[in-house]
Design a protein around this nucleic acid. Structure first.
Lengths: 210, 210
DNA sequence: TACAACAGACCAACCAGTCGGTCTTTACTT
DNA sequence: AAGTAAAGACCGACTGGTTGGTCTGTTGTA
């Protein structure tokens, strides 16, 4: 297969990561890759297709990993651990992809957007399902609203792309460990009787509606 | 003062929110606002200045709120509650500002960027300080690494801009309540002795280094 | 010789920003 | 109160540079 295609993607990734999709011109990409307009448009129909390819390789990978984690384990707790672990680690592997994914998704052309959105929602539903399952089996606190809790988890993990550096204080595995700890601490029951919890807590509105 | 200036900002906000900074031209802004290029450039030096103004009004507000919450309370627990509460509520007030803030910060011109970055870091440090304070006083779990925990909180809250809708299932206050619950659940100690915690937890690497 | 892989000059569309001009409000003088 | 000059607010045709994309080749290779 073509070597140039992959080289263009890698170069674009770095440039997009630093300057954003609109901050980088096809001319720049072509120069940095030591090729030509002809070379570029031989491999990609348009600049937009390149954006799509970047989106797709990342989300496809994440989805596959989550499915694997889901199948391997049967209890909700190790499932959550495995999903978070693999999800967080993706940020080390695919950092530039992810930056582009979250920064530039607005600029995906409608046809491309739909395909990406489909896979993204699939992943989201997987995470939500695991939480819901855990709540049903009694492993996780039932009083937590699924949507809010789920988005909190996705949010804290997704945000990693804004601050993670390979040469930072902590490795990606340490971050994954702490995040798993944090999530399990708010998912698992058993703290409510602690003396510290005289403070307003326990999501009152959720009880009212029952 | 000028009415038009505010009207331009509001229109731009909606347009940027939907199509991104680069997806909207000055011509479009001007048409949608029922004014002219002249009108626009009378109030703004450049399109970039408009972007800066949007960034600045939001971050200035958040910073002010956090400082207020910090002064009002003295114990770390209500401080955390107040900061998260006000921070989350901002997403109802400033949703379009925030979308622009996080989507388009890459495109701020250097001089503008510096000013925004300064305020943003100030806010971050305030959050971190409250956590650190709580750890020192023994209110919060000491074994949690400050940076990772802090970014987890900022991440879950910041991510709200990606999914919150006014007409969604939950109100912004309910979201704030649940988020406060989640954060305090992983900050406060006292769960480790629960029977559920036979599972690997408690951030082992953090102990090793002591 | 046929076709994929690439080169690079070229173009039409677009876009942020300019500039000379008009209308309206303010401020000052008589 | 009337007259007027200056400043502020706004208009819109125009421009110079840029950008994504095209098209006519040329080269290597099966």
């Amino acid at each position: 297969m073509s070597d140039l295609r992959e080289k263009i993607i890698q170069t674009s990734l770095e440039l997009f990561d630093r300057h954003g999709f609109h901050g980088v011109t096809v001319k720049q990409i072509v120069q940095e890759t030591n090729t030509s307009k002809g070379g570029f448009y031989h491999h990609f129909q348009s600049k937009d297709e390149l954006l799509f390819v970047i989106h797709d390789t990342f989300i496809t990978y994440v989805l596959k990993e989550a499915q694997a984690a889901n199948v391997t384990h049967s209890s909700p707790i190790p499932k959550v651990q495995a999903i978070i672990q693999s999800f967080v680690q993706v940020f080390d592997l695919y950092k530039p992809h992810i930056s582009v994914f979250y920064q530039e998704s607005l600029y995906l052309k409608p046809a491309y957007e739909e395909e990406i959105k489909g896979k993204r929602d699939k992943f989201k539903r997987m995470v939500f399902n695991v939480i819901e399952e855990g709540q049903k089996t009694g492993h996780f606190r039932r009083e937590l609203p699924l949507e809010i809790t789920g988005m909190a988890i996705l949010g804290m993990v997704n945000w990693i792309y804004k601050w993670y550096r390979r040469d930072g204080t902590y490795t990606i595995d340490q971050i994954a460990e702490v995040f798993t700890d944090l999530v399990l601490h708010f998912l698992l029951p058993g703290k409510e009787d602690s003396e510290y919890f005289r403070h307003m807590l326990k999501v009152p509105f959720f009880y009212e509606s029952e």
